[in-house]
Amino acid sequence: MLTSLHHLRTGDGSRWAVCQDGKWGDLDGTLAGLLALPLDQARAAVEAAGHQARGDRPGDPTLPPVDRQEVWAAGVTYLRSRDGRKEESGHGSLYDQVYDSDRPELFLKSSPWRVVGTGDAVGIRTDSGWDVPEAEVGLVLNAAGEVFGYTLGNDMSSRSIEGENPLYLPQAKIYDRSCALGPAIVPSWVAGPGPFPIGLRVLRDGHQAYAGTTSTSAMTRCFEDLAGWLFRALSFPAGVVLLTGTGVVPGAEFTTRVGDTIEITSEAFGTLTNTVVAVGDASRGKGQP
């Protein structure tokens, strides 16, 4: 039975809907409310809404699959990610240490209001010359740190800024339109524990500029380990989304350009599609207010 949760725009706000085997129905309340519940109670609420699903897909536009959830991200969880970050940096030993250590790299990627959804635009910074999308599986975690569901994520990143100095990671990773999620949330009891194949494709002027694939089976850490570290000294009463790192890193010859279309695809979770725009003002920060 195929079930997914969708965040939809309405005339005066938003609502959540359940799609079950192609039929749609309303889900009472918010994602934050669901994620505040124990997993078995949240599952019962979703399944009850699914059993009531009778209609066709609503015409309401799709929103990112978050309402009050922060988005956090893990880094250097794949060997290819470690090697890619060593390529861009003069501080390669740092990434060896993170890849091999017990403690993972975790950072705040986005507040909920900054997240963009499928069909919206992601950004590349105007002060960066080397930029890549990062295709990732996102864990939708409840307030207890349990995996409620999964979504796809695009952790847009400036390789030139982080490569200049690892301490610039917040500027390389956190800016307007740097985080995309979608198209929906697939419950964990529907998707299973994985592993999940994931693909990345970049289209430019009608042609394929880049394509790559990976699987979460190549991760050096398991989902539960990453979630456990995130919750070790942080609480998330409304739940949280945790991006789990990327195993698809284009080579040094590739950079994302304005006008590109990025597709992140998983058979289990659908396709997250975004176009690319420029964000920011490169003249600021040089004596300018």
Rank of each mutant, 00 (worst) to 15 (best):
W229V: 00
P197I: 02
T220M: 08
G212I: 02
S217E: 08
F231D: 03
C222D: 11
F223E: 00
I198Q: 03
C222I: 03
G228A: 09
A218S: 09
H207P: 00
A209R: 06
T220D: 04
D225R: 14
Y210Q: 00
F231R: 08
D205E: 12
M219Q: 04
D205Q: 13
T220V: 13
P195S: 05
P193S: 11
H207K: 12
E224I: 02
R221K: 10
P195Y: 08
L234V: 07
G206P: 07
S235D: 12
F196E: 01
T213L: 13
M219R: 07
L230W: 07
T214F: 04
D205M: 05
T216M: 07
R221I: 04
D205K: 13
G212N: 02
G212T: 01
L200Y: 11
D225I: 14
R201V: 07
A211H: 15
L226E: 01
H207V: 03
Y210G: 00
Y210F: 15
V202I: 13
L200I: 03
Y210D: 00
A233W: 15
A227H: 04
G212E: 02
T213H: 14
R204A: 00
M219S: 00
S215T: 15
T216N: 02
G194I: 04
T213A: 12
L230T: 04
C222P: 02
F223S: 00
L234Y: 14
G199W: 09
S217G: 08
M219I: 03
S235Q: 11
L203Q: 08
P193C: 06
S217V: 05
T220L: 08
R204K: 09
G206T: 05
A218K: 15
F231L: 09
A233Q: 14
